[in-house]
Design a protein around this nucleic acid. Sequence first.
DNA 1: TGTAGAAATGAATACGCATTCATTTTTCAT
DNA 2: ATGAAAAATGAATGCGTATTCATTTCTACA
Lengths: 334, 334
Amino acid sequence: MKQKNYTSQDVAEIAGVSQSTVSRVFAGNTNVSEKKRKKILAVAEKLGYKPNAHARSLITRKTMMVGIIMRNIRNPFYSAVLEIFHNRLSALGYHLIFINSENEEIQESEVTQLLEYNIEGVIITDALLSSSASQKFKRYGIAVILFNRYTEHLESSAVFCDNYLAAKQIATYLVETGHRSFAFISGPSDTSTTIDRLKGFREVLEERSISNLMIEPGNYTFESGFKAAQELMTRNKSIDCIFCGNDIIALGVMDAIRTIGLKIPEDVSVVGFDNIRMSEWPSYSLTTWEQPLEEMVDSTVELLIEEINDKTTASRIVMMKGHLVVRNTVRSRK
Amino acid sequence: MKQKNYTSQDVAEIAGVSQSTVSRVFAGNTNVSEKKRKKILAVAEKLGYKPNAHARSLITRKTMMVGIIMRNIRNPFYSAVLEIFHNRLSALGYHLIFINSENEEIQESEVTQLLEYNIEGVIITDALLSSSASQKFKRYGIAVILFNRYTEHLESSAVFCDNYLAAKQIATYLVETGHRSFAFISGPSDTSTTIDRLKGFREVLEERSISNLMIEPGNYTFESGFKAAQELMTRNKSIDCIFCGNDIIALGVMDAIRTIGLKIPEDVSVVGFDNIRMSEWPSYSLTTWEQPLEEMVDSTVELLIEEINDKTTASRIVMMKGHLVVRNTVRSRK
DNA sequence: TGTAGAAATGAATACGCATTCATTTTTCAT
DNA sequence: ATGAAAAATGAATGCGTATTCATTTCTACA
C-alpha cells in the first residue's frame, strides 16, 4: 500500500530536467521557465512527490520549527494561549513542538532533545529556564521568549502584563469600595507574577495605612483556592475581600465561601486575574483583571521572529496594561 | 555569542577517532571500547556537541515525531487529553507537533506540511480526516489513530468510549429514577459520538414507550448549552431531565436553568459526559459519565506504536466502557 | 606462544536537498 | 542579422549523520 518516497531526483528524471531545476521549483526560485515548471509540477503531482523537510533544513539551516513549553495546560488561560500561539505561528509557516512541563523551572534534560531538532526558537509560558538550560539555548543561538514571566537579570526576552500596576489598581478599587480587611491568595511565591502582584497590592494598602492583609499561598489551581479560602475564612471571619492570583483560584475561593454558607459579594468580595471565559459564567460572574491575551501573544511572536532573524538582538521586555472587568463579585461597603 | 555547531566529524578529529566511532557512541551502538567512548563523550561535552536529528532521520528514516491534531483545545477534556498524550509519548522518545484545527474534518492543506517532516504517525482528537487527507497519510505509510471518533468504513484505527452503551445506561438510570420528559442536547449532529449517544438514549426510551424526547443541537460549548437550555425550557416547561453531549454543555445548561429560576435537581435533572474536573466543583457537582481517559490514551498510544512499527496492520477499533459518576444533579422523581 | 574467532575501528557511501559556478539558451536593442 | 546582456539550466558539491564492508586489534583457549 505504501508507495516509494519519491525524491527530487526521481521527478527530475521523469520530467527530463536536472535535479537542480526541480529543487528550484519547490524552493520558490523564479529562475525556471514556465514550461519546465509546469512539467515538473505535473510529474510531481502524479508521483505524489513532496520535498523532505529534513534534507532541506540540513542545507538551509532553517527548520521552521518552534518549541512551546507550557506548564499548566489544564489551566484554561493557557489552553487559550496555546490556541492563539498556534494560529499566529502556523500562519507564518512555523510548526510547534509542544512540551508540557510540570516544573516551575525548566530543566536542561527537558530541552536537550529539542536542541537536536534545531528548533529556531522557544516560547516558555508560565515558567522559567534553569540557568544551565538558558545557557544552552544562548549557546546555540536559539531565541527564547518568556511569556507571562520574567527573570530578574533579563537573561531572556519576556512579554507579560504589568502585574504590579494591575494589583495596585485592584487594591485601589477594593479600598475605594470600602473594604477594610484584605486577603491575597498567591501563586507559587517565587514567581515574578506573584511577587509583583503582591508588591502592588501591599503598597496601596500601606499607603493608606491598612495593615489587615492576610496572605495565603496557592498554586494557581481550583483546589488550592478552595483550601486557601476555607483556611482564611475560618482563621479570620472579618475578611471582607479576597484578591486571587488567578481566576481558577478565584473560582475555588467562591465555591469554598459558598460552601461555608457565606454570600458573594454580600459577605465577601472576590477579585480574580486573567479573565478566562469561565469567569463570566453566570454561576461566578467574577470581577477580574483582563490580560490582553491576543496582544501579548502577538508581541511574543513579534519578538520571537525578530530574534530568529537577528541573533544579536539583546533581551527585551514588553509589558502590557490590561484592565479591570467589573462583574458581580465585589460589593461597595460604604 | 553563538558557537559553531560542532559535528560528529569535529568531535572525531579532536578525540582522535573516526566519525563512524563517534556516531556509534551517540547512536547507542555497543561496539565501542570503553576507553574511546569515555574520550568521545568528554570531547563532545566540552565542545557542546549534539547530534543533528535531521541528518539522522535522513538515514534512519525515523523522525521520532508524531503529529497531534486537536480541535477544541479550549475544552478542558481535551486539554487533559493533550497533557496525557504528551506524558506518554515523550516518555517513549517521541516529539509532538501540535496542530489546532477548527474543522470537524481535517483538510489536506492542514497536513501537507506535516508530511514533509515525515512524521511517523498522527493522532486526531475529536475530528475526522477528509478522505483526500486520509489517502495521503495511507499513501505515505503514516499511522493514523482517531481519538474519540470513528468513521463508518473504518479507514483508520480508532479509540473511543462505547457511547451507545453509555447513553443507554444513562437513559436507563434516568428512567428508573422516575423521569418522564426527556431532552438531549447534542454535539454536531454528524459526528459518531453524537449519533451513538442519541441512538442509545433513544432506544431505551422507545423500549419503554416513552416519546417525550426533545432534541436540541449544540456544539460542545458552554454557550451552546446555555442557549439550548433556555430554548428547551421555554418551549417545554414539563422537561424534567436533560442529557448533555458533554460536561461543558451541561455546565451551560445548569447556569441557564438557574438563571431562569429553576432548581437543579429539584426541578430538572442534568447529566453530562466526560467527567472533566469542573464537573465536581461544588457549584455544579454534576452527575456525569466518566470516560476512562488515561486508558483511552494508553490504548491510542499502543495502537500508534504498533502501526508505526508494522505498517501493514489493518485498522483496528478499541472501544472502552466508562461508568456513571453520580453526584448531585439528578433527583429521584418517584 | 600461536591461532581462531570476536570485538573494535575506519574508509567510503548514501540519505534528499539547496546552492554555487560554469555553460547554454533566450531576449532585445541595434 | 548580430552581439551583448539576461535568463535558464545542469554538474558538482556539501549539509551531518548511520551503516556497510573491509581491516585491524583484542580475547581466550589449546
